[in-house]
């Protein structure tokens, strides 16, 4: 067993971790905001149709095709190249991030929809009766209940987005998987290097699992038999 090789490989792969985390966290933040907007849109008939079509398209196609569509496909349009966004859409980083955000929003909006449906009507009515505005009801009643309900499903989505960031290595970004691929083409020690990368992702996902279990406990201790 070549111990030095593993230690060196880990050090090299960990250099990609900041980019992986950066993409993952920003994609989750952007995706959640967009998902919330999609759910609010569902209040009107046209908005509902638009949101449904969006979810249908982004959940029905592979993320890889969405990344390539944005990175290679959009550049084919003259008006995109002349627009204000071109300096961003030319960069693989922004294209990858955009694809991750759009993809995450589709999945998160379905999770959030399930959560919103589980909010008891009585709770919302009680808020309205006691004189809360629509926004206050959303902020203080609907969202807290919905988010608590959606949390277990959402933690799966967090893990899945962290895993999905590996796909941006296909458009030359050097996050953990990108570095691993480059190292493999230099040394041809595929098994060792990819296993090192796998360990890093595994550690991340275990961390998320633990964290979400802790948050769930904190948010509703009575479900776990703890007296607050």
């Amino acid at each position: 067993m070549d111990f030095d090789f593993f230690a060196g490989m880990f050090a090299q792969l960990l250099m990609g971790l900041p980019l992986t985390l950066n993409l993952g966290i920003l994609a989750l933040l952007g995706g959640f905001s967009l998902a919330l907007a999609l759910n609010l849109m569902r209040a009107t008939r046209i908005g509902n149709a638009v949101a449904s079509a969006y979810v249908f398209v982004f959940r029905g196609t592979p993320l890889l095709i969405q990344i390539f569509m944005i990175y290679y496909g959009l550049a084919g349009f003259g008006f995109v190249r002349q627009s204000f966004f071109w300096p961003f859409l030319r960069e693989p980083y922004w294209c990858g991030l955009l694809a991750l955000i759009l993809n995450d929003a589709a999945y998160t909006s379905e999770i959030l929809r399930g959560g919103l449906r589980s909010v008891p009507k009585g709770a919302v009515e009680a808020g309205r009766v006691s004189g809360m505005t629509r926004f206050t009801v959303l902020r203080r009643i609907t969202l807290p209940i919905a988010i608590r309900q959606a949390l277990p499903a959402y933690s799966n989505e967090v893990i899945s987005i962290l895993k999905s960031t590996a796909l941006v290595s296909t458009i030359t970004l050097m996050e953990v998987t990108g570095i691993a691929r480059a190292a493999v083409s230099e040394t041809w020690r595929a098994v060792e290097i990819f296993l090192c990368a796998a360990v890093i992702y595994l550690a991340l996902s275990l961390l998320v699992t633990r964290l979400s279990a802790w948050v769930e406990r904190r948010l509703s201790p009575w479900q776990f038999g703890v007296t607050p």
Binding site: T177, V184, A190, Y201, L202, L206
Partner: peptide, 23 residues
């Protein structure tokens, strides 16, 4: 289950394709 749900799919495919050849 923990391992295969925590590692990116593309990494597993690389591992099987390049690693498989190595093996």
């Amino acid at each position: 289950v923990t391992i295969f749900r925590g590692v990116p799919d593309i990494l597993v495919i690389y591992l099987f394709y390049f690693g498989g050849r190595q093996v």
